[in-house]
Amino acid sequence: MAVNVGSGARASDNAATLAIHPAEPVQEALFRNWLFSRCIAKADSASALSADAHRSAALYAGKSLLPAAAYSAGDALIDRFLDRPFAGPVAGSYHTVACIDLYHSGEAGRLFARFAAQLDQP
Rank of each mutant, 00 (worst) to 15 (best):
Y71I: 05
D120N: 12
V3K: 14
S7M: 08
G6I: 05
F115S: 06
D13Q: 08
I20A: 13
R114T: 15
A87D: 01
H95S: 15
S50N: 11
F86T: 04
A116Y: 07
P25H: 09
A58K: 11
Q27R: 08
I40R: 14
R38M: 04
A58D: 13
N4E: 05
C99F: 04
A76M: 10
A46M: 12
P22A: 00
L59N: 09
K63T: 01
F36I: 02
D83N: 15
Y71D: 00
D44Q: 06
S37T: 15
S50Q: 10
H95C: 05
R114N: 15
S45R: 13
A68I: 13
N4A: 00
L66Q: 10
G62H: 04
A9H: 15
V5S: 03
W34A: 03
P85D: 10
A69R: 11
S45W: 05
D120H: 11
S37R: 15
V90E: 09
Y103T: 02
F115H: 12
A29L: 05
P67S: 13
D75T: 15
C99Y: 03
E107H: 08
I20M: 12
F112C: 03
R10S: 13
D120E: 14
A46G: 15
A73E: 11
A41L: 04
F86K: 01
A91F: 00
G106Q: 09
I78N: 00
Q121P: 03
L18A: 02
H21F: 02
